[in-house]
Amino acid sequence: MRDSDDVKYEKGANATSTRRIKGVCGIPGLAAMQWFNVVIGVVHDCMHCVLLGVMKAIMYKLCSPTNSDKPYFIGKDIKKISKRLDGICPPDFIERMPRELEKNYNHFKATELQPLQKKKLRAS
């Protein structure tokens, strides 16, 4: 577990914009305020942290040939999955049409990795 002092004085003090330490790339300006807690006071960026971070990592694990010996590997069925994705006719509020999974899973954009429920809420 991280605490504010850990981020301010250990990780943040030694991190820079080019040298990240455990996801920390410096100390935010508000950290100088005694009352500000860096850990609970900074909102996580859903697009970069979750969609382009966690979701891309999961896609890579599931589809990458380097994981072909793992029980969760779906790369052997990737052509079937791509074919099913290609047959989908998404509603107009979907920002991007599905792309071929086999060639593009490592290059998906954040909007392609968003859950459908979020898109419905955002569109209304």
Rank of each mutant, 00 (worst) to 15 (best):
D6F: 12
V7Q: 08
V7W: 08
K8Q: 10
K8R: 15
K8Y: 10
K8S: 11
K8C: 08
Y9T: 14
E10K: 13
K11C: 09
K11T: 12
G12T: 06
G12H: 07
G12M: 03
A13W: 14
A13P: 11
A13L: 15
A13T: 15
N14E: 13
N14S: 13
A15D: 02
A15F: 06
A15G: 07
T16V: 05
T16R: 03
S17F: 11
S17D: 13
S17Y: 09
T18H: 07
R20W: 10
R20C: 08
I21H: 05
I21K: 07
I21S: 06
I21N: 06
K22V: 07
K22Y: 11
G23N: 00
C25H: 12
C25W: 10
C25K: 12
G26H: 04
I27P: 06
P28R: 04
L30Q: 12
A31N: 03
A31M: 05
A31H: 04
A32Q: 11
A32F: 08
A32D: 07
A32K: 13
M33Y: 13
M33K: 15
Q34P: 08
W35S: 14
W35N: 14
W35Y: 14
F36I: 02
F36V: 02
N37W: 04
N37C: 06
N37P: 06
V38N: 03
I40C: 10
V42W: 03
V42Q: 10
V43P: 11
V43L: 11
H44I: 09
H44D: 15
D45L: 03
C46R: 09
H48Y: 02
H48E: 00
H48A: 04
C49Q: 13
V50Q: 13
L51K: 07
L52A: 05
G53Y: 00
G53E: 00
V54A: 13
M55Q: 14
M55G: 09
I58Y: 10
I58D: 06
M59R: 10
M59E: 09
K61W: 12
K61E: 11
S64I: 01
S64F: 03
P65D: 00
P65Q: 01
P65L: 00
T66F: 13
T66E: 15
T66W: 12
S68I: 07
S68R: 13
S68N: 06
K70T: 02
K70D: 01
K70L: 04
Y72C: 05
F73R: 02
F73T: 01
I74Y: 12
G75N: 01
K76T: 09
D77W: 08
I81Q: 01
I81P: 01
S82G: 00
S82Q: 00
K83S: 05
R84Y: 11
R84N: 08
C89G: 10
P90M: 05
P91R: 15
E95G: 15
R96V: 14
M97D: 13
M97Y: 09
P98M: 00
P98H: 00
E100S: 06
E100M: 03
L101D: 00
E102W: 03
